[in-house]
Design a binder for these strands. Structure first.
Lengths: 205, 205
DNA sequence: AAATAGTTTAACCAAATGGTTAACAAATGT
DNA sequence: ACATTTGTTAACCATTTGGTTAAACTATTT
């Protein structure tokens, strides 16, 4: 169990950069601020990662690679659709509670530069939903679940799991509650989301 | 029918600024670029709106005021919960198809500066969900709909309607489709979202 | 037509920013 | 011990950026 937390300069930089980039985005981040947070000279950033762009890409890909395999794993195992929905929702929400900036960071930067998705697709472990799609189509055909396009169901699953994090400030305002109460709502969603989805697709016998 | 499209300098600036800010965010936007897009000198931006911050706030509040009343209206009218969900989903998705950058812009900037929500709440027409909340609680109590917290249902409605826009680049990658097919999916969601939600909450008789 | 107020511009400025250089220190190999 | 590579820093540089100024141009008023 290697818990040495990596105190090398390079991982110091990556950690500092992760914080700053996730909080302020690529455009809002300042190299000096990252250097300060890492406790090093600004020139050293360029020594390890030639440019801001390259440092950003390193941070972004690392962040993305934390989320993507998780989705891939659940969506491509051999369990039933209901199990997949339950597992994914629980795992994902638990994970993102510990990394609350992650979804917003990724969505923001992909919106800023949508072409970057093409790069990501090439990486191994990029999620592929074809198995899930077939599974849904089969279950719709044999009448186990309601008639729904696999793509729409997939979008719904992602929306219900991810949006509460990226929309947090807005939702807190609308619902008129503070951080503590909102976190409680999120906690409940670990199971509530799957229940909601399953109710939506299952056929009433 | 006043369709004069407002060709005053001030609204020229606001329009140009809207495009640039929505595409690049507050930090990514450059005053020079906004001036160029508006076809004027950069100094004129400061003549009309003292600073970048103030210009940004003007754009942001205008953008927000396009979305908020819409939500408020539907959520606070006298129709049934199902009607509200149908109306809101259809109206919202139709509207955002015409302004696809809007949701991402607002979410991104609220995440960058969450305290700004407090400002927005003070504005009149800021959405208030208390009526919706009572309505849901009543229907749960009398057994018309499944047991669900009004807040969770509200989050789900928002998530299913908004996320497909802010998550578009990512979802296109996951589903592995192009813009055209994705827009088709969004189009279907004008009705599919409400169906999904209603199935999720209605009791099977 | 002269004065006044409002609008627009070119030129400028100070600060911030990403990036570079050259010197210095610490490890590493021989 | 010495040389060479690797890691680190202070000082510097060119460019960009938000913002200012003073002059010019254009209504509007008197």
């Amino acid at each position: 169990m290697n818990k040495t937390k990596d105190t090398t300069t390079e991982s110091n930089i990556l950690n500092a950069a992760k914080h700053i980039f996730q909080q302020k985005g690529m455009m809002g981040a300042r190299m000096q601020e990252i250097a300060d947070k890492a406790g090093i000279n600004k020139a050293l950033l360029h020594y390890y990662f030639r440019s801001k762009q390259l440092l950003f890409e390193a941070v972004f890909k690392k962040a993305f690679s934390l989320l993507a395999p998780q989705l891939n794993e659940v969506i491509n195992d051999d369990s039933s659709i209901c199990e997949k929905i339950k597992n994914f929702s629980h795992n994902y929400i638990s994970f993102v509670i510990k990394h609350p900036y992650l979804p917003n960071f990724i969505l923001q930067e992909l919106n800023r530069n949508p072409d970057f998705v093409q790069d990501l697709i090439k990486e191994k472990n990029f999620p592929n939903i074809s198995k899930f799609k077939k599974q849904v189509n089969d279950k719709v055909a044999d009448g186990t679940i309601r008639n729904i396009k696999a793509e729409q169901l997939f979008i719904n699953i992602m929306a219900l799991n991810i949006f509460p994090f990226v929309g947090a400030p807005l939702l807190k305002g609308f619902i008129n509650i503070g951080d503590k109460e909102y976190n409680q709502l999120i906690e409940e969603r670990k199971t509530a989301v799957a229940d909601f989805i399953i109710n939506a697709i299952k056929i009433n016998k």
